[in-house]
Design a protein around this nucleic acid. Sequence first.
DNA 1: TCTGGGGTCCTCGGGCGT
DNA 2: TCTGACGCCCGAGGACCC
Length: 420
Amino acid sequence: MFALVDCNNFYASCERVFRPDLNGKPIVVLSNNDGCVIARSNEAKAFGIPMGAVAYQYEELFTKNNIQVFSSNYALYGDMSARVMNLLSQFAPEIEVYSIDEAFLQFDKCDYIKLDEEALKIKRVVSKSTGIPISLGFAPTKTLAKAANRIAKKFPERTNGIHIIDTDEKRIKALKWLAIEDVWGIGRRLSQRLRNIGVKTAFDFTQLNDDWVKKKMSIVELRLKHELEGKPTLSMLATGAPKQNIATTRSFDHNYKELSILQERVSTFASICGEKLRKQKSCCNAIMIFLHTNGHRKDLPQYSQNIIIKTPFPTNSSIEIAEFALAGLAKIYKDNYYYKKAGVVVMDITPESKKQFSLFANSNPKHAVLMTAMDKLNRNMGNQKVKLARHDLGRTWKMKQERLSPRFSTNLKEIITVMA
DNA sequence: TCTGGGGTCCTCGGGCGT
DNA sequence: TCTGACGCCCGAGGACCC
Protein backbone atom coordinates (compact mmCIF):
# COMPACT_ATOMS: atom_id res chain seq x y z
CA MET A 1 0.00 0.00 0.00
CA PHE A 2 1.26 3.44 -0.94
CA ALA A 3 0.35 6.74 0.63
CA LEU A 4 0.85 10.09 -1.00
CA VAL A 5 1.13 12.87 1.53
CA ASP A 6 0.80 16.36 0.11
CA CYS A 7 1.01 19.65 1.98
CA ASN A 8 -2.00 21.85 1.22
CA ASN A 9 -1.09 25.05 -0.67
CA PHE A 10 2.39 24.56 0.75
CA TYR A 11 4.07 27.95 0.23
CA ALA A 12 0.95 29.82 1.32
CA SER A 13 0.65 27.57 4.39
CA CYS A 14 4.31 28.24 5.29
CA GLU A 15 3.65 31.98 5.23
CA ARG A 16 0.69 31.41 7.54
CA VAL A 17 2.56 29.37 10.12
CA PHE A 18 4.29 32.45 11.48
CA ARG A 19 1.45 34.83 10.64
CA PRO A 20 -1.71 33.27 12.07
CA ASP A 21 -3.50 36.55 11.36
CA LEU A 22 -3.45 35.44 7.72
CA ASN A 23 -5.66 32.41 8.37
CA GLY A 24 -8.72 32.59 6.16
CA LYS A 25 -7.24 35.44 4.11
CA PRO A 26 -6.26 35.11 0.46
CA ILE A 27 -2.52 34.66 -0.11
CA VAL A 28 -0.42 34.35 -3.24
CA VAL A 29 3.30 33.60 -3.49
CA LEU A 30 5.34 34.87 -6.45
CA SER A 31 8.19 33.31 -8.44
CA ASN A 32 11.74 34.63 -8.52
CA ASN A 33 11.87 38.29 -9.52
CA ASP A 34 8.24 38.52 -8.38
CA GLY A 35 7.28 37.50 -11.93
CA CYS A 36 4.30 35.19 -11.68
CA VAL A 37 2.06 33.47 -9.17
CA ILE A 38 3.37 30.05 -8.17
CA ALA A 39 1.20 29.30 -5.13
CA ARG A 40 -2.25 30.34 -3.97
CA SER A 41 -4.30 29.75 -0.88
CA ASN A 42 -7.83 28.42 -1.42
CA GLU A 43 -9.20 31.92 -0.79
CA ALA A 44 -6.95 33.30 -3.57
CA LYS A 45 -8.00 30.50 -5.93
CA ALA A 46 -11.61 31.55 -5.31
CA PHE A 47 -10.79 34.92 -6.92
CA GLY A 48 -9.94 33.04 -10.11
CA ILE A 49 -6.19 33.70 -9.99
CA PRO A 50 -4.65 30.98 -12.14
CA MET A 51 -1.34 29.22 -11.54
CA GLY A 52 1.40 31.12 -13.36
CA ALA A 53 -0.62 34.35 -13.50
CA VAL A 54 1.64 37.27 -14.46
CA ALA A 55 1.84 39.28 -11.26
CA TYR A 56 1.72 42.81 -12.63
CA GLN A 57 -1.44 42.02 -14.58
CA TYR A 58 -3.21 41.10 -11.34
CA GLU A 59 -1.90 43.95 -9.22
CA GLU A 60 -5.25 45.70 -9.20
CA LEU A 61 -7.12 42.56 -8.18
CA PHE A 62 -4.60 41.97 -5.37
CA THR A 63 -5.04 45.48 -3.96
CA LYS A 64 -8.79 45.62 -4.38
CA ASN A 65 -9.39 42.37 -2.55
CA ASN A 66 -6.67 42.76 0.04
CA ILE A 67 -4.86 39.67 -1.25
CA GLN A 68 -1.60 39.15 0.64
CA VAL A 69 1.29 38.90 -1.79
CA PHE A 70 4.65 37.31 -0.91
CA SER A 71 7.94 36.92 -2.76
CA SER A 72 9.11 33.31 -2.62
CA ASN A 73 11.10 32.59 0.52
CA TYR A 74 12.91 29.34 -0.21
CA ALA A 75 14.89 29.43 3.02
CA LEU A 76 11.60 29.22 4.90
CA TYR A 77 9.90 26.66 2.62
CA GLY A 78 12.95 24.39 2.47
CA ASP A 79 13.25 24.34 6.23
CA MET A 80 9.53 23.71 6.79
CA SER A 81 9.63 20.93 4.19
CA ALA A 82 12.54 19.22 5.97
CA ARG A 83 10.58 19.32 9.24
CA VAL A 84 7.47 17.78 7.65
CA MET A 85 9.50 15.06 5.86
CA ASN A 86 11.34 14.22 9.05
CA LEU A 87 8.03 13.67 10.85
CA LEU A 88 6.60 11.59 8.00
CA SER A 89 9.62 9.29 7.96
CA GLN A 90 8.68 8.15 11.45
CA PHE A 91 5.42 6.65 10.25
CA ALA A 92 6.50 4.26 7.50
CA PRO A 93 9.45 1.97 6.87
CA GLU A 94 10.03 3.64 3.50
CA ILE A 95 9.67 7.23 2.36
CA GLU A 96 10.30 8.85 -1.00
CA VAL A 97 10.47 12.63 -0.85
CA TYR A 98 8.96 13.41 -4.22
CA SER A 99 9.03 17.20 -4.12
CA ILE A 100 9.29 20.04 -1.65
CA ASP A 101 5.70 19.44 -0.51
CA GLU A 102 5.00 15.79 -1.32
CA ALA A 103 6.17 12.38 -0.19
CA PHE A 104 5.23 8.78 -0.88
CA LEU A 105 5.13 6.41 2.05
CA GLN A 106 5.02 2.65 1.62
CA PHE A 107 3.29 0.43 4.12
CA ASP A 108 3.99 -3.28 3.87
CA LYS A 109 1.53 -5.91 5.02
CA CYS A 110 -0.53 -3.28 6.73
CA ASP A 111 -3.89 -3.82 8.24
CA TYR A 112 -6.19 -1.90 5.91
CA ILE A 113 -8.80 -1.43 8.59
CA LYS A 114 -6.43 0.64 10.67
CA LEU A 115 -5.18 2.83 7.83
CA ASP A 116 -7.70 5.55 8.53
CA GLU A 117 -6.59 5.75 12.15
CA GLU A 118 -2.96 5.92 11.10
CA ALA A 119 -3.76 8.64 8.57
CA LEU A 120 -5.50 10.72 11.20
CA LYS A 121 -2.51 10.35 13.49
CA ILE A 122 -0.08 11.49 10.76
CA LYS A 123 -2.25 14.48 10.03
CA ARG A 124 -2.46 15.46 13.69
CA VAL A 125 1.25 15.10 14.36
CA VAL A 126 2.31 17.12 11.31
CA SER A 127 -0.23 19.81 12.04
CA LYS A 128 0.69 20.07 15.72
CA SER A 129 4.45 20.05 15.19
CA THR A 130 4.71 22.26 12.10
CA GLY A 131 1.36 23.98 11.59
CA ILE A 132 1.21 22.69 8.01
CA PRO A 133 -2.09 21.12 6.88
CA ILE A 134 -1.72 17.95 4.79
CA SER A 135 -3.87 15.62 2.70
CA LEU A 136 -3.35 11.88 2.41
CA GLY A 137 -4.26 9.41 -0.32
CA PHE A 138 -3.84 5.65 0.10
CA ALA A 139 -3.92 3.09 -2.70
CA PRO A 140 -2.20 -0.04 -3.99
CA THR A 141 -0.17 1.91 -6.60
CA LYS A 142 1.56 5.27 -6.62
CA THR A 143 -0.61 6.63 -9.45
CA LEU A 144 -3.79 5.61 -7.63
CA ALA A 145 -2.43 7.12 -4.40
CA LYS A 146 -2.04 10.38 -6.31
CA ALA A 147 -5.66 10.11 -7.43
CA ALA A 148 -6.80 9.29 -3.88
CA ASN A 149 -4.94 12.35 -2.62
CA ARG A 150 -6.68 14.48 -5.21
CA ILE A 151 -10.05 13.28 -3.98
CA ALA A 152 -9.05 13.95 -0.36
CA LYS A 153 -8.10 17.51 -1.28
CA LYS A 154 -11.11 18.15 -3.45
CA PHE A 155 -13.68 17.08 -0.86
CA PRO A 156 -12.18 18.10 2.50
CA GLU A 157 -15.52 18.18 4.33
CA ARG A 158 -16.45 14.67 3.34
CA THR A 159 -12.98 13.10 3.53
CA ASN A 160 -11.32 15.17 6.25
CA GLY A 161 -8.34 15.28 3.90
CA ILE A 162 -7.94 11.49 3.84
CA HIS A 163 -9.03 9.07 1.13
CA ILE A 164 -8.27 5.38 0.89
CA ILE A 165 -8.72 3.30 -2.27
CA ASP A 166 -8.76 -0.23 -0.93
CA THR A 167 -11.47 -1.93 -2.97
CA ASP A 168 -12.13 -2.29 -6.68
CA GLU A 169 -15.39 -0.40 -6.34
CA LYS A 170 -13.61 2.60 -4.88
CA ARG A 171 -10.93 2.38 -7.58
CA ILE A 172 -13.49 2.38 -10.40
CA LYS A 173 -15.45 5.20 -8.78
CA ALA A 174 -12.27 7.28 -8.46
CA LEU A 175 -11.22 6.59 -12.07
CA LYS A 176 -14.64 7.59 -13.41
CA TRP A 177 -14.44 10.83 -11.45
CA LEU A 178 -10.84 11.67 -12.45
CA ALA A 179 -10.56 13.71 -15.67
CA ILE A 180 -7.89 12.40 -18.05
CA GLU A 181 -5.85 15.60 -17.83
CA ASP A 182 -5.70 15.22 -14.05
CA VAL A 183 -4.02 11.82 -14.18
CA TRP A 184 -0.44 11.98 -12.88
CA GLY A 185 1.76 11.63 -15.97
CA ILE A 186 -0.84 12.80 -18.52
CA GLY A 187 0.06 16.36 -19.44
CA ARG A 188 -1.44 18.90 -21.82
CA ARG A 189 -0.36 17.24 -25.05
CA LEU A 190 -1.34 13.70 -24.20
CA SER A 191 -4.68 14.64 -22.68
CA GLN A 192 -5.57 16.56 -25.83
CA ARG A 193 -4.66 13.56 -27.96
CA LEU A 194 -6.69 11.27 -25.74
CA ARG A 195 -9.68 13.59 -25.67
CA ASN A 196 -9.61 13.64 -29.47
CA ILE A 197 -10.26 9.89 -29.48
CA GLY A 198 -12.99 10.13 -26.87
CA VAL A 199 -10.99 9.36 -23.72
CA LYS A 200 -12.33 11.80 -21.14
CA THR A 201 -11.62 10.11 -17.82
CA ALA A 202 -9.00 7.89 -16.23
CA PHE A 203 -11.52 5.06 -16.46
CA ASP A 204 -11.86 5.53 -20.26
CA PHE A 205 -8.07 5.32 -20.48
CA THR A 206 -8.03 1.96 -18.71
CA GLN A 207 -10.47 0.62 -21.33
CA LEU A 208 -7.93 1.06 -24.14
CA ASN A 209 -6.04 -1.91 -25.53
CA ASP A 210 -2.54 -2.49 -24.05
CA ASP A 211 -0.88 -3.02 -27.42
CA TRP A 212 -2.48 0.07 -28.85
CA VAL A 213 -1.31 2.19 -25.91
CA LYS A 214 2.24 0.92 -26.21
CA LYS A 215 2.37 1.30 -29.97
CA LYS A 216 0.58 4.62 -30.37
CA MET A 217 1.80 6.21 -27.17
CA SER A 218 4.76 4.74 -25.32
CA ILE A 219 5.86 2.38 -22.60
CA VAL A 220 5.38 5.21 -20.11
CA GLU A 221 1.65 5.40 -20.77
CA LEU A 222 1.31 1.62 -20.71
CA ARG A 223 2.88 1.54 -17.26
CA LEU A 224 0.53 4.31 -16.23
CA LYS A 225 -2.46 2.30 -17.44
CA HIS A 226 -1.37 -0.69 -15.39
CA GLU A 227 -0.92 1.55 -12.35
CA LEU A 228 -4.49 2.79 -12.75
CA GLU A 229 -5.66 -0.82 -13.01
CA GLY A 230 -4.13 -1.44 -9.60
CA LYS A 231 -1.03 -3.30 -10.81
CA PRO A 232 2.05 -1.56 -9.39
CA THR A 233 4.71 -0.74 -11.98
CA LEU A 234 6.35 2.17 -10.19
CA SER A 235 8.38 1.46 -7.09
CA MET A 236 9.69 3.72 -4.39
CA LEU A 237 12.76 5.66 -5.45
CA ALA A 238 15.65 6.22 -3.09
CA THR A 239 15.48 9.65 -1.54
CA GLY A 240 18.74 11.51 -1.62
CA ALA A 241 20.12 9.65 -4.64
CA PRO A 242 22.70 11.82 -6.42
CA LYS A 243 21.25 13.95 -9.19
CA GLN A 244 22.16 13.31 -12.81
CA ASN A 245 22.13 16.98 -13.77
CA ILE A 246 22.45 20.07 -11.63
CA ALA A 247 21.34 23.44 -12.92
CA THR A 248 21.66 27.02 -11.76
CA THR A 249 19.74 29.37 -14.02
CA ARG A 250 18.19 32.77 -13.51
CA SER A 251 16.25 35.43 -15.29
CA PHE A 252 17.70 38.89 -14.74
CA ASP A 253 15.94 41.90 -13.33
CA HIS A 254 16.78 43.81 -16.54
CA ASN A 255 18.04 42.99 -20.00
CA TYR A 256 21.84 43.07 -20.18
CA LYS A 257 24.10 43.50 -23.15
CA GLU A 258 27.63 43.71 -21.74
CA LEU A 259 29.81 40.61 -21.79
CA SER A 260 31.39 41.54 -18.46
CA ILE A 261 28.04 41.35 -16.67
CA LEU A 262 27.22 37.99 -18.23
CA GLN A 263 30.69 36.73 -17.30
CA GLU A 264 30.07 37.63 -13.69
CA ARG A 265 26.65 35.94 -13.70
CA VAL A 266 27.82 32.77 -15.45
CA SER A 267 30.80 32.50 -13.15
CA THR A 268 28.54 32.81 -10.12
CA PHE A 269 26.11 30.17 -11.46
CA ALA A 270 29.06 27.86 -12.17
CA SER A 271 30.33 28.34 -8.65
CA ILE A 272 26.91 27.47 -7.19
CA CYS A 273 26.80 24.34 -9.37
CA GLY A 274 30.20 23.36 -7.95
CA GLU A 275 28.86 23.80 -4.45
CA LYS A 276 25.83 21.61 -5.21
CA LEU A 277 28.12 18.96 -6.72
CA ARG A 278 30.35 18.91 -3.63
CA LYS A 279 27.29 18.66 -1.41
CA GLN A 280 26.26 15.39 -3.07
CA LYS A 281 29.92 14.25 -3.32
CA SER A 282 29.93 14.18 -7.11
CA CYS A 283 31.97 15.54 -10.00
CA CYS A 284 30.83 16.58 -13.45
CA ASN A 285 32.36 15.68 -16.79
CA ALA A 286 30.45 18.17 -18.93
CA ILE A 287 29.11 21.69 -18.51
CA MET A 288 26.35 23.38 -20.48
CA ILE A 289 26.08 27.15 -20.64
CA PHE A 290 23.11 28.92 -22.18
CA LEU A 291 21.99 32.47 -22.95
CA HIS A 292 18.50 33.72 -23.85
CA THR A 293 17.14 37.07 -24.85
CA ASN A 294 13.67 37.99 -23.59
CA GLY A 295 11.23 36.00 -25.72
CA HIS A 296 8.34 38.18 -24.61
CA ARG A 297 9.87 41.27 -26.18
CA LYS A 298 8.74 40.82 -29.75
CA ASP A 299 10.16 44.26 -30.59
CA LEU A 300 13.75 43.14 -29.90
CA PRO A 301 15.91 40.74 -31.93
CA GLN A 302 15.95 37.25 -30.41
CA TYR A 303 18.88 34.98 -29.76
CA SER A 304 19.13 31.77 -27.82
CA GLN A 305 22.14 29.52 -27.74
CA ASN A 306 23.78 26.85 -25.65
CA ILE A 307 27.06 25.03 -25.72
CA ILE A 308 28.27 21.87 -23.99
CA ILE A 309 31.88 21.78 -22.86
CA LYS A 310 33.33 18.37 -22.04
CA THR A 311 35.79 18.76 -19.22
CA PRO A 312 39.14 16.98 -19.68
CA PHE A 313 38.79 15.52 -16.17
CA PRO A 314 36.01 15.09 -13.62
CA THR A 315 35.78 18.14 -11.40
CA ASN A 316 33.70 19.77 -8.68
CA SER A 317 36.00 22.72 -8.19
CA SER A 318 34.04 25.96 -8.50
CA ILE A 319 37.16 27.60 -9.92
CA GLU A 320 37.55 25.06 -12.70
CA ILE A 321 33.84 24.86 -13.51
CA ALA A 322 33.73 28.65 -13.74
CA GLU A 323 36.74 28.67 -16.10
CA PHE A 324 35.15 26.14 -18.43
CA ALA A 325 31.81 27.95 -18.26
CA LEU A 326 33.44 31.27 -19.17
CA ALA A 327 35.19 29.66 -22.13
CA GLY A 328 31.80 28.40 -23.27
CA LEU A 329 30.20 31.77 -22.76
CA ALA A 330 32.86 33.43 -24.92
CA LYS A 331 31.91 31.08 -27.76
CA ILE A 332 28.19 31.72 -27.71
CA TYR A 333 28.08 35.40 -26.70
CA LYS A 334 27.13 37.87 -29.41
CA ASP A 335 26.98 41.58 -28.86
CA ASN A 336 23.98 43.57 -30.06
CA TYR A 337 21.56 41.42 -28.14
CA TYR A 338 19.86 42.14 -24.85
CA TYR A 339 20.03 39.11 -22.60
CA LYS A 340 17.37 38.26 -20.03
CA LYS A 341 18.39 34.84 -18.85
CA ALA A 342 21.48 32.69 -18.48
CA GLY A 343 22.32 29.43 -16.83
CA VAL A 344 24.89 26.76 -16.15
CA VAL A 345 24.04 23.05 -16.05
CA VAL A 346 26.61 20.49 -14.93
CA MET A 347 26.12 17.09 -16.57
CA ASP A 348 27.57 13.61 -16.91
CA ILE A 349 27.86 13.40 -13.15
CA THR A 350 30.04 10.74 -11.52
CA PRO A 351 30.81 10.00 -7.87
CA GLU A 352 33.72 11.89 -6.36
CA SER A 353 35.15 8.63 -5.07
CA LYS A 354 35.37 7.11 -8.55
CA LYS A 355 37.45 9.86 -10.11
CA GLN A 356 39.36 8.63 -13.15
CA PHE A 357 42.72 10.32 -13.33
CA SER A 358 43.84 11.35 -16.75
CA LEU A 359 47.38 11.07 -18.01
CA PHE A 360 47.65 14.66 -19.19
CA ALA A 361 45.27 16.89 -17.31
CA ASN A 362 43.77 16.58 -13.88
CA SER A 363 41.77 18.66 -11.48
CA ASN A 364 44.03 20.86 -9.40
CA PRO A 365 44.38 19.00 -6.07
CA LYS A 366 44.81 22.28 -4.19
CA HIS A 367 41.26 23.23 -5.13
CA ALA A 368 39.77 20.41 -3.08
CA VAL A 369 41.23 21.87 0.11
CA LEU A 370 40.22 25.37 -0.87
CA MET A 371 36.65 24.35 -1.74
CA THR A 372 36.23 22.47 1.54
CA ALA A 373 37.30 25.60 3.42
CA MET A 374 35.02 27.79 1.30
CA ASP A 375 32.01 25.51 1.85
CA LYS A 376 32.66 25.43 5.58
CA LEU A 377 32.88 29.21 5.84
CA ASN A 378 29.74 29.64 3.77
CA ARG A 379 27.90 27.15 5.97
CA ASN A 380 28.89 29.02 9.11
CA MET A 381 28.61 32.58 7.88
CA GLY A 382 25.67 32.30 5.54
CA ASN A 383 25.34 31.52 1.89
CA GLN A 384 27.70 33.07 -0.65
CA LYS A 385 29.68 35.10 1.85
CA VAL A 386 32.92 33.67 0.46
CA LYS A 387 33.10 33.96 -3.31
CA LEU A 388 35.53 33.69 -6.18
CA ALA A 389 37.45 36.89 -6.89
CA ARG A 390 35.75 37.44 -10.22
CA HIS A 391 32.35 37.64 -8.59
CA ASP A 392 31.38 41.22 -8.21
CA LEU A 393 31.47 41.92 -4.50
CA GLY A 394 30.60 45.56 -4.93
CA ARG A 395 27.31 44.78 -6.53
CA THR A 396 24.61 42.85 -4.81
CA TRP A 397 22.76 40.80 -7.37
CA LYS A 398 19.44 40.77 -5.73
CA MET A 399 16.41 39.32 -7.30
CA LYS A 400 13.39 41.49 -7.24
CA GLN A 401 11.87 40.34 -3.94
CA GLU A 402 9.86 43.25 -2.75
CA ARG A 403 7.50 41.27 -0.56
CA LEU A 404 9.74 38.78 1.16
CA SER A 405 8.66 37.45 4.55
CA PRO A 406 11.33 37.00 7.25
CA ARG A 407 13.33 33.75 7.36
CA PHE A 408 11.54 32.94 10.61
CA SER A 409 12.96 29.48 11.09
CA THR A 410 16.49 29.65 9.67
CA ASN A 411 17.90 33.04 10.60
CA LEU A 412 18.35 34.08 14.21
CA LYS A 413 18.05 37.77 13.37
CA GLU A 414 14.64 37.18 11.80
CA ILE A 415 13.25 34.78 14.34
CA ILE A 416 9.72 35.46 15.51
CA THR A 417 9.23 37.48 18.70
CA VAL A 418 6.48 36.43 21.07
CA MET A 419 5.09 39.21 23.23
CA ALA A 420 4.04 38.18 26.69
C1' DT B 1 8.76 48.07 -17.34
C1' DC B 2 7.36 43.54 -15.37
C1' DT B 3 6.22 36.48 -17.84
C1' DG B 4 10.24 30.97 -12.52
C1' DG B 5 13.55 27.31 -11.61
C1' DG B 6 14.95 22.65 -11.39
C1' DG B 7 14.50 18.10 -12.44
C1' DT B 8 13.42 13.06 -14.88
C1' DC B 9 12.68 9.75 -18.49
C1' DC B 10 11.69 8.29 -23.22
C1' DT B 11 11.90 8.26 -28.31
C1' DC B 12 14.02 8.96 -32.47
C1' DG B 13 17.51 9.16 -35.79
C1' DG B 14 22.32 9.09 -37.18
C1' DG B 15 26.93 7.09 -36.80
C1' DC B 16 29.48 3.16 -36.29
C1' DG B 17 31.13 -1.67 -35.62
C1' DT B 18 30.25 -6.45 -36.66
C1' DT C 1 36.26 -5.30 -51.14
C1' DC C 2 31.51 -4.14 -51.06
C1' DT C 3 26.82 -4.26 -49.19
C1' DG C 4 22.90 -4.88 -46.24
C1' DA C 5 21.05 -6.07 -41.71
C1' DC C 6 21.31 -5.48 -37.06
C1' DG C 7 22.40 -3.74 -32.53
C1' DC C 8 24.52 -0.35 -29.61
C1' DC C 9 25.60 4.28 -28.25
C1' DC C 10 24.85 9.03 -28.13
C1' DG C 11 22.78 13.62 -28.60
C1' DA C 12 18.72 16.34 -29.44
C1' DG C 13 14.24 17.15 -28.59
C1' DG C 14 9.90 16.36 -26.46
C1' DA C 15 6.99 15.03 -22.89
C1' DC C 16 6.13 14.98 -18.11
C1' DC C 17 6.51 16.44 -12.88
C1' DC C 18 6.63 19.92 -8.82
